[in-house]
Amino acid sequence: MARMNEDAQWIVLMGFIVSFSFFFLAMILNQATVVGQTTAESVLDFPKNDVRDVKAVIIQSSSVPTDADFRTDLQSIALSRKNAVVNYSVTLPNPPADIHTYINIHYNNGVTLYDEMWASL
């Protein structure tokens, strides 16, 4: 029986390496869908617009006449529709000692906790 031809072992070895590389590239490609989905989900879950919006309306409320009903409106609607606990306190300017308005904003929807102290210019 003829001996097996042992030429070109390097070429065959390279063939193995290339096929393994393709295999792992395919695995990485396979993850792309999941990565896109989870990234978009994270962006959807993060309440960026809610936080900005709450901040904007609270700052705006400091320059128009509001009473306790306004605060209750804000807090109960946020709790009911956004599952978010919102609280804030406004320190109005005290001229001439201090001409700034200070607002403390607290936002917590159970996943994202946000606190800010805002000061007017």
Partner: peptide, 26 residues
């Protein structure tokens, strides 16, 4: 769903006086 907070000077249902209220546009 997108939302926006609005300060509305309005007499909403259940209220007798018109004043600034917080409302959520959904």
């Amino acid at each position: 769903k997108v939302t926006e907070w609005v300060i509305a000077d309005k007499k909403f249902t259940g209220s007798n006086v018109q004043k600034n209220r917080a409302a959520l546009v959904e």
